[in-house]
Amino acid sequence: MNLFRLFGDLSHLASIFILLHKIRTTRSCRGISFKTQALYVAVFVSRYLDILWEWVSLYNFVMKVFFIASSCFILYLMKMKYRPTHDPSIDTFRVEFLVGPCALLALIFNYKFTFTEVLWSLSIFLESLAILPQLFMLQRTGEAETITTHYLAALGAYRALYIPNWIYRYFSEGVVDPIAVTAGLVQTALYADFFYVYFTTVIQGQKFELPA
C-alpha cells in the first residue's frame, strides 16, 4: 500500500458519503444519473464478488463489502425512497452502447480466459465508462448543485490518484497491470473537462455552470 492508493481509496469512500449526504439533506436524487449508479453496482458486484473465494487483507475485504453494499443502497434510495425526485427524461444516455463493447473488450483483453477473469476485465472496462451517463446528464442540464460537483470531484480524484500509484508500483515492485492502467487513464481523461470547470468555478465559490 502506498499513499497514492490509500488517498485514492479514501477519496472513493468520501465520494460515496458525499453522495449519500446530498440525497439525505436535499431529500432528492435530482441531478444524479440512475444509469451511472446502476453501472457502479454492476461494476462492484462483478469485481468484488471474489471476496467469496479470495482473501487478500482485512482492508481489502472491508472496502469491497462497503462498495458493494453502498452502491446497492444508493440504487435502492433512487429507485424506491426518492423515486419521484428522479427524472428519467434527462437520464438518456444509451447504456447498451457501453456494455456491448466492454463485454467484447473483456473477452479479448484479460489475464486468463476464465469466467472470473473475464468478469474482472469487464468490470474494469465498465468502470472506466460508467461515469458517462452522469457527465452526459450534466452536459444536458448545463449546471449542477455544488454538492453533486463535490461528489464527482472526489470520484474523479480516486482514479486520478491511482495513476501515480501505478507509476510508483512500477518502480518499486516492477509490476504493471496494463488492463487497469489503460482503463484508468481513459477514465481519468473523461473527467478532464469536468475538472477544468470545477476548479475554475466551484473552487472559486461560484455555481457550476457549463458554457452554453
Binding site: R5, F67, Y162, R169, V175, V176, A180
Partner: peptide, 10 residues
C-alpha cells in the same frame, strides 16, 4: 511475470 492484475487493488 510482470504483467498481471494487482489483486490487492480495489
Amino acid at each position: 511475470e510482470t504483467l498481471h492484475r494487482q489483486k490487492d487493488e480495489l
